[in-house]
Design a protein around this nucleic acid. Structure first.
Length: 811
RNA sequence: GCUCGGAUGGCGGAAUGGUUUACGCGCAACACUUAAAAUGUUGUGACCAUAAAGGUCAUGUGGGUUCGACUCCCACUCCGAGCACCA
């Protein structure tokens, strides 16, 4: 008997699949011609979130996600779809750069090393990747399109520069988007984030807030991701109300506009007893000439400094501004306070305080002995009307801060011309002197600078590369300066699914008619699988960019991913995997020891895919044994193959054996479970069938073995291919037709009916489908156990659920 | 604090109104072996009991709906994830 040498078999098939282009989407349809996306008849874009090539190599968590996605794609392929399953590397960004810094290599050099390693590992897991279309975000061929996307947004007026307090990571020495700040810590390095006043590039994602929210109802996504996005967008319906300032005091008249507040409760307008402005708001007054007392100045300074100390629950602090405002609804004079419990950047940065109806206002009022008014509520509309306010919808979502003061990213393709700025010229209003790099001049290549370390002065290392930033103005031809910041790495990944479709001969094209034709055919993505950690990062940004490109008529859809499923988190022996704990599972090790098929199956068998799983070394033996038994199956079937060959399953004649019934049930179970990503129970069904095959050796025939192999193929692609081939099949099992089940063959001839007395299980009966309730009642009453329990009792009621349960209720 | 998950044998989990514990791990006994490993077979929720049966109790806790609840409803406890002074 041949030995199950998984290492040899897996390598052999991985190579053969590539040579024979088994996983190129149109392979099935075009017998002679070159595979191409164009020729496919039933496109199915099966996408998995591409990994960033970390230094540690492929994480088992990546493999978990990819295997789950691949299984789905493999079934779809066998069901006759042209499945496109591309892979690439999200290699730009702080993570890769920090690692290069740590080991003292240049990121570009390190990228090449990681790339090689990652592709080798990705090949070893046995996925049906379309290798020809792979991409790396740091490839200039790729990032010129990242820059192109930036320019398209710029052309639509969705890009602007603004000086404001932004999140700054002192360790990474760069700004961060709100979405990258977790518990006030840098998402990457966990350093405490501080606020810094800097001029930065922003994308107007807020302009799409309503659409981003509304479309969620139409897309088929994991509910928890939708909820996370809804919360992040944070829509509130309310009103803007203006409170005139009554006393002038030291506030100059030109900076004495009414204080505008946003409230969701205009119905409480008569209960307002004071106003509160944020320290940032008060700071603006000072900048415009207000000269308050030292106490106030001191409070503002401290509050701004401590803005991010979110430790423990803070007691409210604040200071009286010294002047008052008028409640427009009842003309009452109310004091204006300054407190950091009011946030800048949401609403107007000022609030009307209603201590009777708001806990936070109440706490503040109590602390500073301010009055609490129990004035009656009015209706929402009346409140708006009486206060002279206007209805307003407020979103929590803020614009996407896109610039980064780092080296390893796509340079922002913008040029600043001082001459044009002086002459008030430019491409966009309010952005005088700024020009997008002409599209024909893309890419703006990232120069190979020696010192790529972050500077920490709010500038990218590129600001020291004269040869990079010196350029001519595209408008007037004078000396001009390139933007030296690079874009957030989330821009690289916000459009990559387009790039796979637009790749041809190592170049990308997402603009011409050929691309449009392909995009129309292949997009939006049919199935997208990835981690829930990207709920409000990658997944929200990608949607925004798609909407913007759609509105610019570059693509004909505005939601990039029709269906999205978040997989669960893979943990190790009850704990999160982390480098510091030293419990990170290295897939290479397990593949070497048990084979990729075994590891794939084990990962999927752990628990429901969308729930996540707990990796325990001991458990893998179960699937290892299973695969060994599958291998032995072949030996058995091949030795008496000719004898068995004629003995096919009796599907047509009336008699259906239990064995064949189970086969059909297994086909149904596995098909349904894969469709619902319930891989653990699909595998269990396959195990049950194998157990049965071994018990019924005389019934086991070639046909049922082949069907079994087909059902197993998505999970264990190598061993099934090897056996399929050994059993005389010429073409790949992965291109074979997914088995169908016969609905009639699933029906049982007899059913098990549970007999209960007063809801307690007493006996079971095997009943033929022709039996009537009366007959069943009679048989049940004659059952010895039931009889003894019913002895001396009178039956009050009988509940019969056809072919499921019969329940006798007694007094 | 708010939102969303979750709690079932020694362990991962299965079952979504009708036989709780599928499948797998682990464990035990047996077979094979000089022996061990591997493999195979059988058993395996707890308690009581037995010659054989059998009985009672168990799905985080307490209550409810129902002939019948792991499943539906209410309250609570614990664990995990996300958001967090968003007016």
């Amino acid at each position: 008997m041949k030995k199950y040498d998984f290492t040899k078999i897996e390598k052999k098939w991985q190579k053969a699949w590539q040579t024979k282009k088994v996983y190129e989407p149109s392979f099935v349809k075009t017998s002679a011609g070159k595979p191409s996306l164009k020729k496919s008849k039933k496109p199915f874009y099966n996408l998995m979130m591409f990994p960033y090539p970390s230094a540690e190599g492929l994480h088992v968590g990546n493999m978990y996600a990819f295997t789950g996605s691949d299984i789905y794609g493999r079934m779809k392929r066998m069901q006759g779809h042209d499945v496109f399953e591309p892979i690439g590397l999200d290699g730009f960004g702080i993570h890769s750069e920090n690692y290069a810094l740590k080991i003292g290599t240049h990121p570009a050099k390190q990228a090449k090393i990681s790339e090689k390693r990652f592709y080798k590992q990705l090949e070893a897991i046995g996925n049906g990747f379309a290798w020809n279309e792979r991409l790396e975000t740091y490839d200039p061929e790729y990032y010129q399109w990242t820059q192109w996307v930036f320019i398209q947004l710029w052309k639509q007026g969705l890009v602007y520069r603004k000086k404001q307090a932004v999140n700054w990571c002192p360790s990474c020495k760069t700004v961060l988007a709100d979405e990258q700040v977790v518990n006030n810590k840098c998402e990457r390095c966990s350093s405490e984030v501080i606020q810094k006043e800097l001029e930065q590039w922003f994308f107007k994602i807020t302009e799409y807030a309503e659409k981003l929210l509304k479309n969620l109802d139409m897309i088929d996504w994991s509910e928890k991701i939708k909820i996370a996005q809804r919360n992040w967008i944070g829509k509130s319906e309310g009103a803007l109300i203006e409170f005139p300032i009554s006393e002038i005091r030291s506030l100059k008249s030109d900076i004495r506009p009414p204080i505008s507040v946003f409230t969701t409760r205009p119905d409480t307008i008569f209960g307002v007893t004071f106003l509160v402005v944020s320290p940032e708001y008060a700071q603006q007054w000072i900048k415009s000439g207000w000269n308050p007392s030292d106490e106030i100045k001191k409070y503002i300074a401290t509050a701004l400094k401590n803005r991010n100390n979110h430790d423990e629950k803070k007691e409210k602090t604040g200071v009286f501004s010294g002047f008052s405002a008028i409640n427009p609804a009842n003309k009452e004079k109310i004091p204006v306070w300054i407190s950091d419990y009011v946030l800048p950047g949401y609403g107007t940065g000022a609030i009307m305080a209603v201590p009777a109806h708001d806990e936070r206002d109440h706490e503040f009022a109590e602390k500073f002995h301010l009055p609490v008014s129990h004035a009656p509520l009015v209706s929402f509309d009346e409140g708006v009307q009486k206060s002279g306010g206007k209805k307003h919808t407020q979103y929590r979502l803020r614009d996407w801060l896109i610039s980064r003061q780092r080296y390893w990213g796509a340079p922002i393709p913008m040029i600043f011309c001082a001459n044009c700025a002086n002459n008030k010229k430019g491409e966009q209003k309010g952005m005088e002197g700024w020009y997008a790099v002409p599209e024909k001049n893309l890419p703006v290549k990232l120069p190979n600078v020696k010192d790529f370390r972050p500077q920490g002065k709010g500038e990218s290392p590129l600001a020291s590369a004269k040869s990079f930033y010196e350029t001519k103005c595209p408008h007037c031809g004078e000396n001009a300066r390139r933007e030296t910041d690079v874009s957030d790495t989330f821009l690289d990944s916000a459009w990559y699914y387009l790039a796979y479709v637009g790749k041809k001969n190592s170049k990308f094209e997402i603009r011409n008619s050929n691309f449009k034709h392909l995009a129309h055919k292949w997009l939006p993505v049919h199935m997208y699988i990835g981690g829930a950690e990207h709920s409000v990062l990658h997944l929200l940004y990608s949607r925004f960019v798609a909407m913007a490109l759609h509105d610019a008529e570059h693509i004909d859809f505005d939601e990039p991913f029709t269906k999205f499923r978040a997989h669960g988190l893979l943990i190790k022996e009850g704990a999160k995997m982390s480098k510091s704990k030293g419990n990170v599972v290295n897939p290479d090790e397990y593949i070497k020891k048990f084979g990729a098929d075994a590891l794939r199956m084990y990962l999927m068998f752990l628990a429901p895919f969308e729930q996540g799983g707990d990796f325990r070394d001991a458990g893998i033996l179960g699937v290892v044994r299973f695969l060994d038994r599958v291998w032995k199956l072949y030996t058995r079937i091949s030795t008496n193959r000719s004898a068995n060959n004629t003995n096919s399953i009796r599907e047509i004649s009336g008699q259906i054996s239990e064995y064949s019934r189970l086969l059909h049930r297994t086909i149904k179970k596995v098909t349904d479970d894969i469709e619902n990503l319930q891989y653990n129970t699909a595998i269990s069904a396959l195990m049950i069938f194998l157990n049965e095959m071994e018990k019924n050796k005389e019934q086991q025939d070639l046909k049922s073995v082949l069907i079994f192999l087909q059902l197993l193929a998505p999970f264990a692609p190598h061993i099934t291919e090897e056996l399929w081939c050994s059993l005389g099949k010429k073409s790949s099992i992965h291109l074979s037709e997914w088995p169908n089940y016969d609905e009639n063959a699933i029906q049982e001839e007899s059913k098990t009916v549970v007999v209960q007395v007063n809801g307690k299980h007493r006996s079971t009966l095997t009943i033929t489908l022709t039996s009537s309730q009366k007959e069943i009642e009679q048989i049940a009453c004659e059952d010895a156990r039931v009889k003894s329990v019913l002895e001396g009792k009178s039956i009050k009621k009988v509940i019969y659920i056809p072919f499921k349960v019969i329940n006798f209720v007694t007094d």
